[in-house]
Design a protein around this nucleic acid. Structure first.
Lengths: 248, 248
DNA sequence: ACCCCGGCTTGATCCACGTCAAGGCACGGA
DNA sequence: TCCGTGCCTTGACGTGGATCAAGCCGGGGT
C-alpha cells in the first residue's frame, strides 16, 4: 500500500479557504465561514522550530506551503523523525493541549491556523468534523505503521528508495506524469533530516544516494533535484510488494 | 511519556458488557444495550490468524483476554509487528472494510465483536462515539510514534528493556506495585514475536535477555516469567527520558 | 576576489547485530 | 521409557552501517 494520498490534490485547492476541506470534506458554506472567522496565518523559515515538545499549543493548523517535521529527541541527542507534514496535512490534536514532539519547519513554511477553543467548539457541535478527523488520524496511523516496517526491517538502500518513492508520490505534479515512467522532483529535506527520517546517519544516506546514482536508478541535478528515468525500477529497490499498483 | 494507559484498569471491568466502555466512555444505559444487542464472542488459540492482510473484516472488536498482534510481512518473509493489542484494546476501523495487516493471536485470545454495519450506525447517530474513537486512535498513533523512535534509534539492549517496561506498565497487577520497585510479570510473546516487535532477530533477543539477567537487571523464572528487582534500574536501561515519572 | 560556512561526499576503520550452526530443556505422545 | 518437536540458548563468524576523519562544493558577505 502506497503512502496515503493527499486529502485533496494540491492543484484543486491553492489557497487556504478551500484547503479547510482538508479538515472537513463535507463542510457547507456556513461552516467554512465559521472556520474563516477563526483562522490566521503563520510563516516560518527553514530550520525554525514551530513548537517544542511539551509546549502547549494554542492552535491547530493545516499546512499551506512547505514541509514540517515531527521529531523526537533522546537526552543523548539521538533523533528520530516520527511525522512529515506536507501541504494539506493537518497539524495538532484537538482536545490535547501539549505537543508531544518538536515540530520543525524543514523548508520555509506557511501554516493556516485555527485557535484551539473555537475549533474545539466546532468539533463538538458539528459531528462530521470529528468523523473527518478520525479518518485523517487513521491515515496517519497507516503511514506510521508502514514507516515502522521501513525502520525495523529494510536495508539502507531500501529505505532511501522507499523515501524517494514516498516523496515523489506526494508531489502533485509528479502524480500526473508518474505513469510515463520518467519523473523529476525536489527533495524537501537535507541529508541530515533524511537520516533522522530513516533511522540512518547522514553519511549512509549520502553513500546510498551515490550508489543509486552509480547504478542508474536516479540522477541528480544539484544536491536536491532528483530525476528518476524509470519509476518502476525505483519501486523495485524499495522491497515493497511490487504489484505495480502505482495508483493503488 | 510512557506507553498509553489502559482505557480502564482491567480490574474495573472484568467482563465484556462493561468493557464496552473501552469503546465509549460516556455510554448511557440505552447505548450499552444497543451494543449488547449486536455483540458476540470469538475465541482463538495461540498462533491462530484472526484475519489476513487484505481480507475484509465484517466486525470490529475489543480484546477481552489474551494478546493479539498486527504484523506486516514482506514478500521475502521479513516481518515487522506494527501493533500489539492487550485486553481492553480495540481492533478494527469503522468505515474501513479491508484489514491492512495480519492479525495474529499471540496467546489464547477472546474477542468481543460487534458486527460492522450496526456498529457504524451507532457511530453515525451517537456523536461522542466517534470522538471517543478519535481519542483511542490518537493514543495508538502516539504509541506507534514512540515505537518508531525505538525501531530507528535504540540499541538492542534498550529495545529489550523498553519492551519489558511497556509490558510491565500495561499489566494491571504490576501497576499497583510498581512504586515499590520489585515487580514480576509474564511475557505474552515468544522470543520470535519479540524479535518481530523490536526489529531484531530472535537470537539477539535471547542474548540481550541473558545479558540483562547476568547484570542483575532482571531474573527469569522459566522462560516467560520476569522478575524485576528494581524497576527504576530497568528504566535506566531503556534510554528514555528518566524523569522518574513512573505514573506520568 | 577572497574567505567562510553549511551542506554534502568519500575513505578507512570499527563493532553491534545478523547469520549459521550446534545443542539444551520441557513437554506430550506412542 | 524414549523419542520428537517447539522453544530457547549459546558460540563462531561475517557484514552492513556507524564512527571518525578529511576534504569538496557553492553561495553569501566583506
Amino acid at each position: 500500500m502506497p503512502h496515503r494520498q493527499l486529502a485533496f490534490p494540491q492543484s484543486e485547492c491553492a489557497d487556504c479557504p478551500i484547503r479547510h476541506r482538508a479538515v472537513c470534506a463535507r463542510c457547507e458554506t456556513d461552516e467554512l465561514e465559521q472556520l474563516e472567522a477563526i483562522k490566521y496565518y503563520r510563516n516560518y523559515e527553514a530550520g525554525q522550530t514551530v513548537v517544542w515538545a511539551g509546549d502547549s499549543m494554542d492552535f491547530v493548523a493545516s499546512v499551506v506551503r512547505g514541509v514540517a517535521s515531527l521529531t523526537q529527541t533522546m537526552e543523548d541527542g539521538r533523533r528520530q523523525m516520527v511525522g512529515l507534514l506536507l501541504p494539506s496535512d493537518f497539524l495538532g490534536r484537538p482536545s490535547r493541549e501539549k505537543a508531544p514532539y518538536d515540530v520543525i519547519a524543514t523548508t520555509d513554511l506557511q501554516l493556516c491556523c485555527f485557535r484551539r477553543a473555537p475549533f474545539q467548539n466546532m468539533i463538538d457541535t458539528t459531528p462530521h468534523i470529528s468523523q473527518r478527523l478520525l479518518e485523517m488520524t487513521l491515515d496517519e496511523l497507516d503511514a506510521a505503521r508502514e514507516w515502522m516496517l521501513l525502520l525495523g526491517r529494510k536495508t539502507a538502500r531500501e529505505k532511501i528508495a522507499s523515501f524517494l518513492a514516498i516523496i515523489a508520490r506526494r508531489d502533485a505534479q509528479v502524480q500526473q506524469t508518474i505513469a510515463q515512467g520518467e519523473v523529476g522532483f525536489d527533495l524537501p529535506l537535507t541529508r541530515e533530516a533524511m537520516a533522522d527520517y530513516l533511522g540512518l546517519t547522514l553519511e549512509t544516506v549520502s553513500r546510498q544516494m551515490s550508489s543509486l546514482k552509480r547504478d542508474g536508478v536516479i540522477s541528480l541535478e544539484g544536491k536536491r533535484r532528483i530525476l528518476v528515468p524509470d519509476f518502476d525500477v525505483l519501486l523495485d529497490e524499495t522491497g515493497d510488494d511490487s504489484d505495480g499498483g502505482v495508483l493503488a
